[in-house]
């Protein structure tokens, strides 16, 4: 006897634009929280940003808590 099963299927197709936009958010957010050592602010403040580590200090506690390598 064959069994008919009902499954939930969505016909929505994820566009390339959506994938690109979310991929940018993913990469930027991950870099800010997990890896920035002054790189982002150095665009504006130059070498001083690597001394101040403003974003690094802001994300410091989450960096440790989420398992990212830190000093």
């Amino acid at each position: 006897m064959s069994e008919v099963r009902q499954i939930n299927k969505s016909k929505f197709a994820v566009s390339k634009v959506a994938i690109l936009a979310l991929a940018i958010v993913f990469a930027a957010g991950l870099f800010v929280v997990g890896f920035d050592q002054g790189h982002i602010f150095s665009i504006v403040y130059g070498e001083q940003a690597f001394v101040d580590l403003t974003i690094h200090e802001l994300t410091h506690d989450m960096r440790h808590a989420a398992g990212f390598p830190c000093h």
Partner: peptide
Amino acid sequence: IWQKSGQVLAGVILGLAMGSLFGI
């Protein structure tokens, strides 16, 4: 104080990032 105040903000930023990967 700066580090502690960033805990929740960084959580939201990391959430946006990982949530984006999850969404894709």
